[in-house]
Design a protein around this nucleic acid. Structure first.
Lengths: 256, 256
DNA sequence: CTTGACTCTCCCCTTACGTCAGGGTTTATC
DNA sequence: GATAAACCCTGACGTAAGGGGAGAGTCAAG
């Protein structure tokens, strides 16, 4: 009759000592005996029972149920297996649904990104985009530009439309203030409202540098992209330059 | 600007108040404001963000990761989704393996049961089985017989062989004691050993009535089934009757 | 006699909440 | 103005299946 101490049995069966302690505590696997000092001693029979426990555990049976399977003779094992099977089937079904959803989401995101990218630069000659990028890089550093572009790229089509609408709204209120300085309180109040709207779509409530760079970058985008620089249907360069200055002032004074 | 208290928002989004408390605590969804009394107040923006959280939660993302997705702008969402997809795929694979294993187990058990059933009654005319069942039902009640039959049915082929071997062993020791009374200590000691062996195969460490009935029933089965009632190759009715009486005495005195 | 390997029992930590408990607040009704 | 109902707060415990560690006892070898 061979007897194993906890660590021996644990190694034999490939489980941790803690697990054996737990199983003892739960009454799932009691040691065959204890030494005077209280050390657990397991025999062949316990090794065998442990194998059984691990088998059902592998099948994702909860330990409680394993206890019933192994310890109550009138437990209907076949029925338990059938039940477990249907449980596993519905788990699998659920996973399949999740997989579909994820596939759709990934598609969606990829499409939006591409579309977004197109949309973002469609109305805008490539050279101009490149030039803006160069210029901004000199001013703010390559990292800031990267981050700012990231923000812009993450916009969805609907968000882009909303952006245009915001633009219209603020235009309506700001064209009347073009005689003011871009850093005047009355102008900056409007900018603050605009910023608050924009921020919702950027999906972040944090603050600090990235926000500031992105917002300033957006102001420059308004200048470069004709889709944003129209007022009442016609491009109005002076206005978007004014707007950009106001936004950059806001970014530098309120967002840093 | 509409503001919602916790319960309102909870109902709107179909989550519990506790969940909102938790998300606040984790920094996943902070209320837009607090009243003087400390009540949480949520706005439209928070409702929207909650929807997003729930979306990813549905996809089984851990809350921590959801936080990263929603709060860090340079988090690569597509990459996260791809990763999650492969995780889900391996979960599904694992489930498929489990399902196969379970199917095999069920097959195995059913075959064993059938085989077992055949084996159990093969050497035994149907009428006799029926007669034993009737008699035992009268003596112990229909429930006890059901339970006892259940025990027997759960034996595998290998276990049945072991049962026969046990039978031989005990025969060897008991035939010499047939002149003793079935309830004499010397006989009962042997029976106790026999019972201990049997019990291993019944896979239960419990005690009480079902054990007793089953063991007594097994004694009767020895009488009725010729495969068990042979001694040295020949049927020995007197011996199995003696054995049965000893087992029943044991069951009634030691197992109740 | 000491060192190292082993063991014991408690205890806290993990996820994503459910479920009190004890106490404060708001609102509707009388 | 009082009171009850409904609502809110924080704090803490419990869940499944262990992981990890503290502090203390035990065992075999050198």
């Amino acid at each position: 009759m061979t007897l194993y101490a906890v660590k021996k049995l644990a190694k034999l069966a490939g489980v941790s000592v803690r697990t054996l302690h737990l199983y003892d505590e739960l009454g799932l696997l009691k040691p065959a005996a204890r030494t005077e000092a209280g050390y657990r001693l397991y025999g062949e029979q316990e090794l065998f029972r442990l194998q059984q426990i691990l088998f059902y555990r592998e099948l994702d049976f909860p330990l409680q149920e394993i206890g019933q399977i192994l310890y109550s003779p009138d437990f209907d094992l076949v029925q338990a297996l059938e039940n477990h099977k249907t449980a596993l089937l519905s788990r699998r079904d659920r996973i399949n649904v999740l997989l579909e959803t994820i596939a759709h989401s990934i598609d969606h995101l990829k499409n939006e990104k591409m579309m977004n990218h197109e949309d973002l630069y469609k109305g805008l000659p490539k050279e101009k985009a490149a030039a803006w990028r160069r210029e901004a890089t000199e001013k703010y550093g390559i990292e800031a530009v990267d981050r700012s572009e990231n923000y812009l790229r993450r916009l969805s089509k609907a968000q882009l439309e909303q952006l245009k609408q915001d633009q219209k709204d603020i235009n309506a209120r700001l064209v009347a203030l073009m005689h003011e300085s871009p850093d005047s309180p009355i102008v900056q109040d409007q900018i603050a409202l605009h910023y608050a709207n924009i921020r919702e779509f950027w999906g972040t409530a944090g603050s600090g540098d990235p926000q500031a760079e992105a917002y300033a970058g957006l102001g420059q985008l308004y200048v470069d992209d004709e889709r944003f620089s129209k007022v009442d249907g016609k491009p109005n360069k002076a206005y978007v330059l004014f707007l950009r200055d106001a936004m950059q002032y806001f970014a530098e004074t309120k967002l840093k």
